[in-house]
Every structure is written in C-alpha cells, then in structure tokens.
Design a protein around this nucleic acid. Structure first.
Lengths: 333, 333
DNA sequence: TTGTACGCGTTATCAT
DNA sequence: ATGATAACGCGTACAA
C-alpha cells in the first residue's frame, strides 16, 4: 500500500480513503490512486483490515450433518445471500456430536467470526441465550417458540395438522405418527399438530400409535415394524420426515402390504428424492432454501446492530399431494 | 495480552513465548503466565496472529452444488480432517456457475486462505496450472490424468469397465451407456471404460447406444427415452451416475417395461438413496468420504511445503450388487 | 531465560 | 481534501 501511495504521490491514508470512502476524496486523486493500484497490481491485505476493524466478514454455520439434504438446502440459501452481501461462510459440520459446538465457539471468542447460524437446536435454551448475548446468532429451522434468539422456522404445528387432516379427509380414522427425536422442538411440534388434527376431528389420541426415533430411513423402518405388529395396525401414518416415510414404506412393502392401498403415508420435508420414490411421497414442503436466505438476512441485520421489530420468522409448508397418501385413488368412504 | 503480562509480572514477549514455544521458557514463569491467562480469561486474537504470520489456517472448498450427495460426502471427509488438524473450511458453493470461481480466487489474492480444494474440473488445464503455481491446490474427484496439480480420484476407467463387464457377464450383448457431461474428464473416462469392456469382449461399439447429458435424474429420464425409441433397444444400460440410473429406470417403468427383467441397469456413486430405490441400484461405490479426507491430507502437506513423492491418488470403486442389474435372478444364457 | 522494540498492512483521529 | 501518526495484537530479532 505504501508503494501505491508513493507511485500516486499521496499518503497511504489517501489510498485507504480512495478505496473505503471514495466520496471523501477528490475525483482527480482518486483516479491517480486507482491508476497506481492497477499499475502495481495491488490487492489490499484483508487480514490487516480485519485486525484494524475487528471484524471478519465471516459467519459460521453449524450443521448437524451436511449429508442430509434438508441441511444442504438451507446451506445453499445461506451461502447465496452471504456471497451476495460479501460474507464468507465457514462450515461447521458437527456430525451429530453436539459437544463439537463448543469447539466452534472458540472461533467466535477469538474473533474469527462476526456471527453464527445454527441449524440445530439440541442446546438448552439458556445456553443459546448466553450465546446470543455474546454474538449475533440466528437459529433455524428448529427452535422452541419462546426463544428470544431470532429464529426462522416453519409452522410445524400447523403444517403437521394439515398433513394429518389430509389423511383424515381421505377417510382414515386410525392414524399413526412416527416422530423424530422428541427432544427436538420441531419433533414435538409435529407431534402436537398431529394430535390437534385428531382432536378437532373427534378422533381419540392413542399413545400406542405414536412412535419416535430419529429422522432416518432406518428409524422409519424400525418404528413401522412396531406399528405393523399391532393387533389392529393403522391405515395411515404421518411421518415426521421423508426419510422416515421412505423407511416406513419399505417396511410395509416387505410385510406384503401396499402403499397407499393398505396403508397411506404422508412425509415431511419434500426432500429431493421424494418425487421419484415409489410410490411418490405426499409430503409437506418446507421452503428450505428461502428459509436459509432469510436466516442470513436476519443475521446481517443483527450484525449491523439493527434492532428488529420481529424476531421470529415463520414460514408455512405446502402440502404436496403425490401418490403415497392415496388421494389419486378412489376415496374411501 | 499486555494485561496478562502485567498480571504475571513478565513482558508480552514472554507471554507469547509461553504459548508458542513453551520449551524456551522457564517452567516456573510458564506456570505464572498460564495462571494469569486463566485468571484474566484471555484468548489470543487470532486475527493479529494471522497478520503477523501471514497465514489463516483456512482453506476454501469450491463445490459445484452442495445439494448433491456426492459433494456433501466429500465435504464431510474434508471437514473432518480439517477440524482435526486445526483448519477452518470456507464453503464456496458456485452452484454450477463456473465464473463464480473467479470471485473466490480473490479470497486467495487477499491472503484469506492458505489453500484450496476444487470439487470441479470445468476449468481448463492451464488455468488450473496457473492457480496451482500460486497456492496449494488439490483437485478431486474429477480431473484429467495428466494434471500436474495433485489430484485424488477414483479409477473411472477401470471401475466403469468392471461395471460394464458385470452386465456382460450376466449375458447382455446389447449394452448402452448414458454418460455425464462429456467435457468432464470423469465422464470421458467412464465412457472409455465402457468402451474398453465392450472391446475386450468382442462387442462392437455403437455410437447410437451412447447418450450424454448431465448427471441428473432428469437427464437419465430423457436419455433413456431416446434409447427406448430405437428399433432394437438395449437390454442393459450402464449409467454414469446413480441419479441418471434412477431417471432411466423411472422412464423404463413408464414405458411398461421392467428392471432388471427387461432392461438391466448399473449406476455409479452409491448415493445414499440408491439402496432404498426400487429396484435397489447395483452401482459402483466411490469411497467419497475417504477421498475427501485424503484430499485434505494432501493439501495440508502441500501447505507445509512438503514435496510429495506422489501427486495422484487413485482409489478404486467397489461394485455393489443389488437388484437393478438382475444378478439375483437366473442368469440369461 | 527474559525484556525491548519493531513491524505485519490497514484505518481512524487529528491536524492542516 | 489530504497528510502524519497512532493503534489494532501478536511474534521475533536482538540485546541483556
């Protein structure tokens, strides 16, 4: 930079200004500086700038597992607006080991990041709160409703209620639910939506018909097995994720039954493969990429010190009717 | 840091030494410093350290599209060893827009990254070469064989040959190939493997039986359509990716034919969903996570200035036999 | 073994 | 509108 200054016959301060606050510099000198810069092929040292400004223009995204399509879609949205706004995104794949979050927290303590988006909610509320007091933080897509931390979520209760009601409208009265890990609030909310749908339609809630595991294919397979063992198995199952739904369907087929003829299924997420699965999954589509974008936008506002009028952004999921629910067949009476 | 120094009655230099070169400091003073550090709850400012050392301990991973399971698996492996070795990984999702790579190159010019792993090979060889001269660079999993840049790849030719030979061994003589984008060397190599398998088994290579698109389900669907239109359609298809295979199978079913009875299919990648697809995909499994790990290891060596005896690391893919190839049925004669 | 002092490349403050 | 200078926090050459 001092070379540039010399070459342009100005001080380093002016060079800096020409780049940072072009309006505060005479057009003529600005041109001189610019010329010098290209002549010497100078690029600013961002490290020094960061040290001076105490900011990194970098955010950290903590993700439970990149290989899950849900998270990669969110990540994709986050990355898109981050780039557009000049932020870099640091990947924090904790691979389901919650403890690893603490390692990443050091990044912040050492001022290596300006903010953070968490794609996981396993942390207790007060830890999150402490964190949020220290640095700009946004949580998505799973968060308890009463969090004071800004969140971007889908209306899990309402969406699940609609999914369940769709099955009810198809004539089902004996509906099961395969939930995700019940310590996650999204799982709890989806269960709650299922329960409300039953309630409003005068169907008794039965504990036996609710199984919980994690969000994987394997869990769906295993929980469905339990359901099939019942004296009177359900005629429809609302699954808390598409992967669960796929696992469940696989198990049903193995049992010699058909989906949706014998048992109807609705999933959640609208994961990429849900449309080519057989039968194609009826599912609740979360606008994941959009939610990722919004998370980043909220975070940026936060980092810029804007006090937001709104802290929680709630999206609604779309019911995508395909084959696994049986809506395309004759309705039952 | 100066606070720590004061608290411990030493100079800042000693504090620094106590942390960087513990052996060059008396045990007693080291303890004093450590005590002061915990007492004041001091954490070093990494930015300043980086400025001083001119290194960031950060690498950039350029990925064509995070939502693709192949890349997220690689990323997962990269991230794992990066963390372990104290590196941060910056995500560069270019979303198939090759031009965006140039934006990321600025990160390097501005010394924001120490090295780079590219999960894409669309760049011409000499651009890559130029890049590699400027900074540590590793390319995976798609790269031309003659690249001077370090690469971590799968043996595409050999693997594809084995995949094709598997179909031949099942009695097929009229085999088609649906390739990926032919400007990618991995696509070219897979086509070459297919060709060699035919050649070595005395089967004439027929241009008509080779279709190319990209690696997506949609492409597989579309290319299979062409194949089905032929007067004598193939009895087996080797697909350059699992997604292509899924699309192709979908089209075949729509046509009223069965897989593998009427047409046998082999895919490539062993993507997560390939095992629950119906029929379950026979495919070539790349050790993607391991390849990601290896890429990061090679990059670290590079960044440490080690001259590697070996620049190209070639993994072999495993043939995973499931249902889509028909091996579980009676063999044809 | 430890302290002094400089420099890494910027940017902000204060003068001019 | 511009220049001189201090400061960001650390690591290291040199001196002691």
């Amino acid at each position: 930079m001092s070379d540039v200054a010399k070459y342009a016959n100005v001080s380093t301060a002016t060079v800096s200004r020409a780049l940072q606050h072009p309006e505060s510099v005479k057009e003529e000198t600005r041109q001189k500086v610019l010329a010098a810069i290209t002549a010497l092929n100078y690029t600013p040292n961002v490290l020094a700038r960061q040290l001076r400004r105490m900011e990194t223009k970098t955010i950290l995204v903590v993700v439970p597992n990149i290989e899950n399509n849900v998270f990669s879609q969110l990540l994709s949205g986050i990355d898109a607006v981050a780039n557009q706004k000049g932020y870099k995104v640091l990947l924090g794949n904790i691979n389901h080991k919650v403890d690893k979050i603490y390692d990443y927290l050091d990044h912040f303590r050492q001022r290596q990041i300006d903010g953070m988006i968490m794609l996981i909610s396993d942390l207790s509320d007060h830890i999150l709160q402490d964190l949020a007091n220290e640095l700009p933080l946004v949580i998505t897509p799973d968060s308890s409703d009463d969090a004071i931390v800004p969140t971007v979520v889908v209306d899990n209760v309402g969406s699940s209620q609609r999914a369940t009601e769709h099955l009810i409208s198809l004539g089902h009265r004996r509906l099961a639910h395969i939930a995700g890990p019940l310590h996650l609030s999204s799982s709890k909310s989806r269960l709650e939506g299922y329960r409300q749908a039953l309630h409003e339609n005068g169907i008794r809630f039965d504990h036996e018909l609710v199984k919980a595991g994690d969000f994987t294919i394997q869990a769906g397979f295993k929980q469905m097995e339990q359901l099939l063992l019942m004296e009177v198995p359900p005629t429809a199952v609302f699954c808390a994720s598409d992967e669960i739904a796929m696992g469940a369907i696989k198990r049903i087929k193995q049992h010699g039954l058909k989906v949706p003829e014998d048992i109807a299924i609705v999933g959640f997420d609208n994961v990429k493969f849900s449309s080519i699965f057989e039968p194609a999954l009826t599912t609740m589509a979360q606008p994941l990429e959009e939610m990722g974008r919004q998370s980043m936008k909220v975070l940026i506002d936060r980092m810029n010190g804007k006090t937001l009028s709104k802290n929680h952004f709630i999206y609604s999921a779309d019911l995508i009717i395909r084959e696994s629910c049986g809506a395309h067949l004759n309705k039952r009476e």
